[in-house]
Structure formats: C-alpha cells, structure tokens
C-alpha cells in the first residue's frame, strides 16, 4: 500500500523528532531534597538506613540556613499539607513584614512595585485556594513557595541601593 503524501511526510517528521530534550534548570537539587524528606528507600539495610539518615541530617544542617524555606516545604509535605501551607504563609508574612520594616527608610527604585506586590499576593491566594482542594500537591506547594520568593526578590530589588544596579 502506497503512503499518502501527508502520511509519508508526517512519518518522516516524526522519525526526525529528537528523543531527548534538556530542561533549562538543574532539577536535581529539588529531587535530592525531596528524597531526603521521604521515607528511607525500602531496599536499605539497617546500617545503610542509619547512614542515610545521618547523611540527610548533615545535608539538612548544612543547607538549613541557605535553603530554609525550601527545606521546610519538602520536609513537611510528608507530614501535613494544610499545616504546612499555614506555616509557610505565616512564616512568609512575618519575614515580609520584617523586611518591609527594615526597608521603610530606603527609597524604592520604581513607583509601581506595590502594585506588582499585590499581583503576586493575589497569585499566592489563588494557589492557596487550589491547595485547599489538594493540600499535599507538591507542585502547587512549589508554586506557592516560588511566588513568595518572587515577592521577596521584588521588595529587595526595588529597595536596592542604586550602585548595585547593573
């Protein structure tokens, strides 16, 4: 049976599609953190489990200060989704208030930053609404965390001294 031109052309194009495509971001750090937060691998022997726990603890202590929000998120997902969302939001509000108070005498570099901040706050509220339906959804939790981080970055950047601008 002879192939129709379209079928033939489609097959040719399908055969030429790349089998691999690389993500723009390095995804391993997030995976690694999530694996540390999960139950030990079922194939672990007792000494391996102890070593894995010790390694996880060392990594957690080492990265704790740098990745505190992310670590809390990943670690608490397995415990309680709703409580985590509340804790994350409360922590964010406290940190944001502290940051805003510390920067109140620093002039902002743009005029519409509060409007942008409101938009990000609305995005966070939409994600929190979605989380009420699915509190353990790690992707939504990551989105919420990302929006909170964007709020911090926005506040910091608009209040950065001018000499820091590139």
């Amino acid at each position: 049976m002879t192939m129709k031109p379209f079928e033939q052309y489609l097959k040719q194009k399908l055969d030429a599609l790349p089998t691999e495509r690389q993500p723009e971001n390095d995804l391993w750090p997030g995976i690694d953190l999530a694996l540390h937060a999960e139950k030990p691998h079922s194939a672990f022997s007792k000494p391996q489990r102890w070593l894995a726990s010790a390694a996880a603890l060392i990594v957690a202590v080492g990265l704790g200060w740098v990745l505190q929000p992310l670590w809390h998120t990943q670690n608490d997902v397995a415990l309680n989704g709703e409580a985590l969302v509340q804790a994350l939001s409360q922590q964010h509000e406290q940190n944001k208030t502290t940051l805003l108070v510390s920067l109140k005498d620093t002039p902002a570099l743009t005029n519409n930053w509060e409007e942008q901040l409101t938009e990000l706050e609305e995005a966070a509220e939409a994600i929190k609404t979605a989380l009420k339906e699915d509190p353990d959804n790690t992707a939504l939790l990551r989105m919420l965390q990302s929006v909170y981080q964007q709020q911090f970055l926005l506040i910091e950047r608009v209040h950065a001294p001018k000499w820091q601008k590139i």
Binding site: P23, E24, N25, L27, I31, A34, E38, T138, A139, R142
Partner: peptide
C-alpha cells in the same frame, strides 16, 4: 520541569 521532578521523586 515539575513533572520531571515528580517522576524522579516517585521513581526512587
């Protein structure tokens, strides 16, 4: 990217 992370988290 999120789905890829989810795959490798669950794959473990």
């Amino acid at each position: 990217e999120d789905a890829t992370q989810e795959v490798f988290i669950q794959l473990w």
